[in-house]
Amino acid sequence: MDITAMPYACRDGLVVQDLPPDEVLVYDTARGKAHCLNRTAALVWRACDGQTSVEAIARRVKGDMGAASLDEAQDAVWLALDRLSRANLLQQPMTPPLVAAGMSRREFVQKLGVASLVLIPGVSSVRIPSQLQTGSPGQSGGSGPNPTPTSSGGSAPIATPKPATCIAAGQRCSTSSGLPCCPGLRCVSFGYNSVCM
């Protein structure tokens, strides 16, 4: 086993949310996939800083998770690295040496053993359906108005696009939006609608 390998976790484009007591949710904004890491997987993923060897991570896992031996902890770390790789959460994919040598992943998990169930790293993944992502009900394809947050009691708005600095020509404006029309334009009302002109 290459216990000197130093895995490096992806960080860019990920939204990370701790879920007490020991799970972590990770949303990959580029791939549109969300992952739930259990305690072991989260511990390993956080330790993947490109400067810590597999052996050092295994020692940490042994100490934190109570593995019976360093070998057992190393198996758990390799399994975690394998699962994190398959979830695209590592910069360089890492395959357990025994798997690379021909052992099936199922056999590798079995090798870890029932006694080490608590050590088995879990990475659950789901794809976030694209049909929920757009603010385009009615098949408007995002061509609709650019809703802007109103100043409603100072609470943080949710589910609104990040505000632009000004509203461009031809786009709708609102006196309550707080956003001005871009320089040289003014908000002109047309009945139920106002447009920056």
């Binding site: 904004t29 549109g32 969300a34 976030i128 359906p129 694209s130 929920l132 992502q133 589910a159």
Partner: peptide, 9 residues
């Protein structure tokens, strides 16, 4: 989260 409307945004 997979059924949240603004998950992407």
């Amino acid at each position: 989260f997979a059924h949240t409307f603004v998950a992407h945004r």
